[in-house]
Write a protein that binds this DNA or RNA. Structure first.
Length: 438
RNA sequence: GGAGAGGUAGCGAAGCGGCCGUAACGCGCUCGACUCGAAAUCGAGUUAUCGGUUAAUAGCCGGUACGUGGGUUCGAAUCCCACCCUCUCCGCCA
């Protein structure tokens, strides 16, 4: 949510930001709504002031043992007028708030201007795409041939965009989760959390998924609970309505959770494989930062994610999103894109954003500066990493002529020492016990 | 699901129709005194938010807020109704 005072005083700052985002939100509409609200508020507050003065007089008379009956009829009429005007003011206020909730965040000054993804700017590149001397396969071919990814049964059990992971694939997913969380909790400064996977409407509003993007979410029909689309939602809202100690900042949380997305509007995109699923596992990092420090924290967060790809020996590049391609709540976003040989391109595997005080304002997350009034913290979030897409990258980058896939060294301890996934594993009737060690 | 208790400032907690929201009392925090320094002790200060005014997130004036939403009343933290959450006991359950 944008600061109300900022819009009142500098409406053109917001108008410029919205134009840069190619947003259609109309600032003039806000100014009209807010003028109405303030006019009504001033009126009703004046009446309430009158009532308070008169009520104090009634109290004084009664205490003195005198009659106040002559005032009561008039005060009754005043109270009725206040009640009516109060309702009107409440409506005006609700309209202003509804408008504010649909306005995206203002981009940071360092964000490049651009209309769409073609305006994004590469800022970092790591590794070299591998060269193969045989016809390479896409991850769904590899995953199916090696008996790990089962799209048919995913479709049978649930529908399209669901996949069953078997044997080595199920374990590889678990290994990645453990590896990521171990790095974040032991080498970085994150506290591991296991949050609820369903949250209420207020929580979804706090991070900005609601009210605007309800069609992207899965909702329980009977309960008004929503399945989380990312752990960013519960992790950021952990401190909703709280005033944090300044000394607690910066504060980092991480969690591995399934993420649920309706993928409405993405028909025909990434229909094969596990790139775009209704349910996928992701390790998420969330940081709460002092406003003066949040852009340093964004660089740190980005490095926390990049490190994982480097340890897995996966080539990637980092881009900064332009104004037209950024998400709703972000002030600045880095995307990490991993090299996928099968697609001959870089694909998003992590998104690291500084939301400034946008979410903190919605969710009411503050800290108390030394000797000062409570102020909003800045919130940041980033994937570290999307687990399904990491599995894709490992399969495609590690493939060999004989149909096997070599595993990154960093991951082998988490796979019982296994060095490669081989075609025989697809035929192991009782699963991985013998071949994957322990 | 049944019975009971409770939700008040950063935390604990008192108040149970007007003198209580600059909210008793305690803790914490800030500043000061004492001290070589610290602890202890003593003194002072410390709710948030909205509107108006303003260069000001400084003052000043006013409104609002005691879980949330309604109701009764001239006036509600206090009385009534509904809902949410927490705790204790019982039941059920992975």
């Amino acid at each position: 949510m944008i600061d109300l005072k900022l819009i009142q005083k500098n409406p053109d700052v917001l108008a410029r930001a919205l134009a840069a985002r190619h947003s259609t939100v109309d600032v003039a509409e806000f100014q009209a709504l807010d003028a109405t609200r303030r006019k009504l508020l001033a009126e009703v507050e004046a009446l309430k002031g009158q009532r308070n003065t008169a009520s104090a007089e009634v109290a004084r008379l009664k205490r003195a043992g005198e009659s106040a009956d002559h005032m009561l009829a008039e005060l009754g009429a005043l109270s009725d007028r206040i009640k009516a005007l109060d309702a009107e003011t409440e409506q005006a206020k609700a309209k202003v708030e509804a408008w504010l909730l649909t306005v995206p965040n203002i981009p940071h000054e360092s964000v490049p201007e651009g209309a769409d993804e073609y305006g994004n700017v590469e800022v970092h590149r790591y590794g070299t795409p591998p060269v193969f001397d045989f016809p390479i396969k896409e991850h769904w071919e590899l995953g199916t041939a090696l008996g790990g990814l089962d799209f048919e049964r995913g479709g049978k059990l649930a529908g399209s965009r669901f996949t069953v992971y078997w044997r080595w694939a199920a374990r590889l997913e678990r290994a990645l989760v453990s590896f990521f969380l171990d790095v974040h909790t032991c080498e970085h400064d994150y506290v591991e959390i296991a949050p609820p996977l369903m949250v209420n409407r207020k929580t979804m509003t706090g991070t900005g998924q609601l009210p605007k993007f309800e069609e992207d979410l899965f909702r329980m029909e009977a309960w008004d609970y929503f399945l989380i689309p990312t752990a960013e939602v519960p992790l950021t809202n952990l401190h909703a309505g709280e005033v944090l100690d300044e000394s607690a900042l910066p504060l980092g949380y991480c969690a591995q959770t399934p993420c649920f997305r309706s993928e409405a509007g993405s028909y025909g995109k990434d229909t094969r494989g596990v790139i775009r699923q209704h349910q996928f596992t992701k390790v998420e990092m969330v940081r709460f930062a002092h406003p003066d420090d949040s852009y340093n924290q964004l660089e740190l967060l980005r490095r926390n994610a990049e490190t994982l790809l480097e340890r897995l020996e996966l080539p990637y590049r980092t881009i900064v999103l332009c104004t037209g391609d950024m998400g709703f709540g972000a002030a600045k976003t880095y995307d990490l894109e991993v090299w996928l040989p099968g697609q001959n391109t870089y694909r998003e595997i992590s998104s690291c954003s500084n939301c400034g005080d946008f979410q903190a304002r919605r969710a009411d997350i503050r800290f108390r500066p030394k000797g000062g009034k409570p102020a909003f913290v800045h919130t940041l979030n980033g994937s570290g990493l999307a687990v399904g897409r990491t599995l894709v990258a490992i399969l495609e980058n590690g493939q060999r002529k004989d149909g096997s896939v070599v595993l990154p060294k960093a991951l082998r301890p988490y796979m019982g020492g296994l060095e490669a996934i081989t075609p025989e594993m697809a035929r192991t009737p009782t699963g991985p016990a013998g071949r994957l060690g322990r």
